[in-house]
Write a protein that binds this DNA or RNA. Sequence first.
DNA 1: CAGTTGATTCAACCACGCTTGAAATGTAGG
DNA 2: CCTACATTTCAAGCGTGGTTGAATCAACTG
Lengths: 105, 105
Amino acid sequence: MGAPVGTDTAGQGAAAVSLLQVVADPVRWAVLARLTGGPSCVCNLQEHVPVPANLLSYHLKLLREAGLVTTSRRGRWIDYALADDALDRLHAALPAMPAAERVRP
Amino acid sequence: MGAPVGTDTAGQGAAAVSLLQVVADPVRWAVLARLTGGPSCVCNLQEHVPVPANLLSYHLKLLREAGLVTTSRRGRWIDYALADDALDRLHAALPAMPAAERVRP
DNA sequence: CAGTTGATTCAACCACGCTTGAAATGTAGG
DNA sequence: CCTACATTTCAAGCGTGGTTGAATCAACTG
């Protein structure tokens, strides 16, 4: 809702920034780092990310909505796993060279 | 080597998250994307990142303090350039598999 | 020197996202 | 059925970071 930031790189930038904003949080970063080691149920994540359960759930929701993680219920528990393209999308979201550029002489 | 949980990933994570928070902003992302094309003076950046000059300066300060950009005065202008290790540090800041840690099946 | 342009700093405002506590959903077991 | 556990949702409260406007610094020009 703020002022748009450009015209050419803004379209790609907006999506990229949205993704980066998701990972640029201590709780969510820790969760993702943990999930890179393999799937995990919430109760397991909770042992390694010391925050209240409901708060963890809030952050998991953001990760879910960003498409960075997937869930699957297993009996009483819910397993979270990294989305297949999660790391690829994150790396692709970092700023990179758009086109040739020149400096004012 | 038996480090207690909560400090091994948190130490790296805190620094990583700090870096990611810097790039996870529309203005700063656009600036970095622009600088990947080569150095640029502020006046040049301003043409491609339409925000007030003082606001741009505020974001440039954060980029500077994060060590992602370097500055050099050239007459009346100030050139900003990507730090040599900027992109490397950013990619390294994304969550990755920490160590050989298995998840309970 | 005065005037102008480029860029930064300062102080104050305000919205957005994180946090918190309590209640709700869903599932398994006695 | 009722309790216990795992997870999510809801409705607030709060703090921090981005935005704004005016003032300041720095360097070139006439």
